[in-house]
Design a binder for these strands. Structure first.
Lengths: 146, 146
DNA sequence: TCCATTACTTATCATTTGATAACAAAATAA
DNA sequence: TTATTTTGTTATCAAATGATAAGTAATGGA
């Protein structure tokens, strides 16, 4: 197994995982927000306190477009913008209780699907999967630093 | 490690992999096609011979929209449609030499980035990553059958 | 103080994508 | 044969997204 073969395997795996992600998320009903807006909420939830610029950088979208989507999310009462007293140009973005509730519901729906997906996995299987994920996380995360 | 913890780990891993995929593909310059069209070409390349209905099903898009994108790709001379003599309603979609060349170039660009990504990986690391990918593929693929 | 930079907003435009209706041709079932 | 299903197309329409110009306010450096 050389690095070229590993690349081939990696591509195939990515396709499988992408398909799996689609299956896991397809039952989440998000009538009020778009996929992009969901990704933004997801990022805010994971990062807890973020600025518009950080969202813009991490989700690879322009600041004007980020600003527009954040305004829409604020209009839907899903996020709050709080002025940063340290630097009054900045605005800290947080989920509102409503936004948090929406994300909690989405995640529990996804988790339910995930559990169905691995319902036949034994404790040994779970340990093996976790170990595999750890290996990949370590290698990919450490590689990102270069 | 119970299944709930595994889910948390899975979500974190998915985020990392998504970010990695973006990094790998960001240097591919596709001035002539959109992301969706690239995904269609990718699917055709992997599957070799497919119909519009198969693309529609696997990429989760409606048949009219699939038909429209295939027409655009045909206009760009990247794919061919060949009538199926067995069933004259069907059309087999294939990459043209130009389309194949475009995909080959894209993939070699992505592979180049991938190799940079794992440039510090030893043969032992490569084996460990491959083993981890195999474990996940097996579990996720077998889970999909249920 | 003055100037450049940063953080963010508003406005506008083109393009992409998703959804749906209506249609035609071929295959299949009744 | 007739009806139904399958495969694919064209034509619209609305919505989402991406890109860019222009502007405001705050910060920080010279």
């Amino acid at each position: 197994m050389d690095k070229h073969d590993l690349f081939q395997q990696f591509v195939a795996f990515t396709t499988t995982l992408h398909e799996m992600t689609h299956t896991l998320t397809q039952h989440v009903k998000l009538d009020q927000i778009t996929t992009l807006q969901y990704k933004i909420l997801e990022y805010i939830q994971v990062s807890q306190a973020v600025t518009a610029t950080e969202i813009s950088d991490c989700l690879h979208m322009s600041l004007p477009n980020t600003s527009r989507e954040l305004r829409k999310l604020q209009e839907k009462k899903l996020i709050d913008k709080i002025g940063d007293p340290e630097d009054r140009r900045k605005q800290v973005i947080r989920l509102t209780p409503t936004g948090q509730k929406l994300m909690d519901e989405a995640f529990s729906c996804i988790e339910e699907q995930f559990l169905q997906f691995i319902q036949h996995a034994s404790p040994q299987d779970v340990a093996a999967i976790s170990q595999a994920l750890t290996v990949l996380e370590q290698h990919f995360f450490s590689a990102r630093k270069y």
